[in-house]
Computed example of a mutant assay.
Amino acid sequence: MSKKIVGEDGKTYVQKKPFYKRVWFWLIVIIIVIVAASSMGGGNNKATKVSSTTKSKSATENVSKETFKVGDTIKADGVTLKVNKVEYNDGSSISQPDSGKSYVIVNVTITNVNKSKASYNPLDFKIDDKGNQTDLTEIVMDDNGNNIVNDELKYGDLSKGATVTGTLVGQAVKADKLQLLYTGSLFSNESKITVDLN
């Protein structure tokens, strides 16, 4: 608040606060600090391969490539992800994929390695079919009306050391180069892990 002062000449003057005592100044400082901390404090978000079903060199192996393959155990942001298997399904009389596409059924395992809590969600994953990125939230029914997937990946939280395995279903052209993209967060557009599915 401004302070009113009566001068020796009898006039009233308004004494303003210095800029560093104003609320707007401190809001700007706080915003700058938060932006700087978030851009620097993210740590090493680069995905690294921990192990592979085809290789067994060392317990932790840094991988220079950014794309992994089915069977690799990949670590990013304190969580490991492993794509266990990929299957394709052409549907049934009840569930049919879009014309020219097949259902892509991806089984994954997520482990919280060193975070106090790690959230998981099927919306953390996308299937990339030549640049067309779609969710893996399809439900496929067999001819009897039963879901062909018994272990759908739901959403939840993993405490440190906990693991969840589940299946995701999407649609894509089977002959195209398909990739699984894992962002690790519903609010992140940048994929942290990319796995070649075929």
Results as ranks from 00 to 15, higher is better:
Ala118Arg: 03
Val164Met: 07
Gly71Trp: 01
Thr60His: 07
Leu186Cys: 01
Asp157Ser: 13
Glu66Met: 07
Asn107Phe: 01
Ser92Lys: 09
Ala175Gly: 06
Leu27Gly: 13
Ile148Asn: 04
Leu180Tyr: 02
Glu8Met: 09
Asn147His: 11
Val33Met: 11
Pro122Gly: 06
Leu158Glu: 08
Asp151Thr: 05
Lys130Arg: 11
Asp143Trp: 09
Gln171Gly: 01
Pro97Cys: 02
Thr165Lys: 11
Thr54Gln: 10
Glu190His: 10
Val6Ala: 03
Phe25Asn: 03
Asn121Gly: 04
Arg22Ile: 06
Lys46Cys: 00
Thr60Glu: 10
Asp142Val: 10
Glu8Asn: 12
Thr60Gly: 06
Gln171Glu: 13
Asn150Leu: 04
Gly166Lys: 06
Asp176Met: 07
Gly43Cys: 05
Leu123Cys: 04
Lys46Thr: 12
Trp24Glu: 11
Glu61Cys: 06
Ser64Thr: 14
Gly170Val: 00
Gly156Ile: 12
Asn146Gly: 07
Gln15Glu: 15
Lys17Val: 08
Val86Ser: 01
Lys82Met: 11
Ser191Gly: 05
Gly170Cys: 02
Tyr182Phe: 15
Val70Asp: 01
Lys126Trp: 02
Leu27Ile: 15
Gly131Gln: 06
Gln133Thr: 13
Thr167Asp: 03
Lys177Tyr: 01
Lys3His: 14
Val79Gly: 04
Lys21Leu: 13
Leu153Tyr: 04
Val33Pro: 00
Ser2Asn: 15
Gly156Thr: 10
Thr137Pro: 01
Leu197Ile: 02
Met40Cys: 12
Pro18Ser: 14
Val173Leu: 02
Ile110Trp: 00
Thr67Asn: 09
Pro97Leu: 05
Lys115Cys: 05
Gly184Val: 09
Val63Lys: 09
Pro18Ile: 08
